[in-house]
């Protein structure tokens, strides 16, 4: 599912689509309903909604992927350190995780995002800043149980250093978990990205973004419900796709 979306998104410039930013139809001030030429209709400036959706996918997927990688890498490091070394370090890191987890994710994201000029870098930073906690907790728990296993004891007996044990004997066993976590984080990232864009803290216009398209559609819901329908469908599709990946990963491991 996600592959199809990613392919379309990456190949967008090659597809015969109207420009997502320039008006394609002379429909100024009045959105056009879906029709053969404009399969998802046009918005109030005459821009092709279908094309905007696909270009929006480029941005959303890119941000989701980067945010997922960023969050998982950050979270993994914190989880590894906390889980393996334990003691005071563990206490400090886990309490910091609790602190970040205490904030409702979107509200914290709003708080951080509001301090900066909106841009995709800021958006990415914000999503990573609120998204690493789940990974950190899960990885910590896994590391603690792996560290008890016999192969780690054997490596320790053979005189391997702690760094080596951590990187060569524990990290490789975490891959399946990390993959699942990345998929889940990506789906959360999509939702936070859409939410922030919806209240105007996302990537600034005129770049097409699903969240902002939804927010703009609110003004036209009486005459143009399709403006509201399609971005939401795309968002649901993408989030569901990431969650299916995560689900598939956990099923396979059982």
């Amino acid at each position: 599912m996600i592959l199809a979306l990613a392919l379309v998104a990456i190949g967008a410039p090659l597809l015969p689509l109207p420009d997502p930013v320039q008006p394609a139809a002379p429909s100024f001030g009045e959105p056009w309903p879906p029709q053969l030429r404009y399969p998802c209709g046009t918005d109030e400036l005459g821009r092709d909604v279908c094309s905007r959706l696909i270009y929006g996918a480029r941005l959303s997927l890119f941000i989701a992927a980067c945010a997922a990688i960023g969050s998982v890498v950050t979270g993994t490091w914190i989880g590894l350190l906390a889980g393996y070394f334990g003691g005071f370090l563990d206490e400090v890191l886990m309490r910091s995780t609790d602190v970040v987890l205490s904030f409702p994710m979107l509200l914290l994201a709003i708080g951080v995002a509001a301090l900066f000029e909106p841009s995709s870098t800021v958006l990415l930073f914000v999503i990573v800043a609120v998204g690493w906690t789940t990974t950190a907790r899960t990885v910590r728990a896994e590391v603690m149980s792996i560290a008890q296993s016999t192969h780690v004891a054997a490596a320790l007996g053979l005189g391997a250093s702690r760094t080596r044990i951590l990187l060569r004997h524990i990290l490789p066993l975490l891959w399946p978990t990390l993959l699942t976590l990345a998929a889940i984080t990506a789906s959360h990232a999509l939702l936070v990205d859409a939410g922030l864009s919806f209240i105007g803290l996302g990537v600034p216009p005129p770049a097409p973004s699903w969240g902002r398209m939804l927010s703009e559609s609110q003004a036209y819901y009486r005459i143009a419900p399709w403006l509201m329908l399609f971005p939401g469908l795309m968002l649901t599709y993408a989030v569901a796709a990431f969650q299916l990946i995560a689900h598939g990963c956990t099923q396979r491991r059982r």
Binding site: G195, M228, G232, T236
Partner: peptide, 22 residues
């Protein structure tokens, strides 16, 4: 439950508004 988890709440809200308030 899968659909419910994937659907963004605010979009569901918009749809509900359209259907049951407009």
């Amino acid at each position: 439950s899968f659909l419910g988890l994937a659907m963004p709440t605010f979009w569901l809200g918009l749809i509900l508004l359209y259907l049951f308030a407009y």
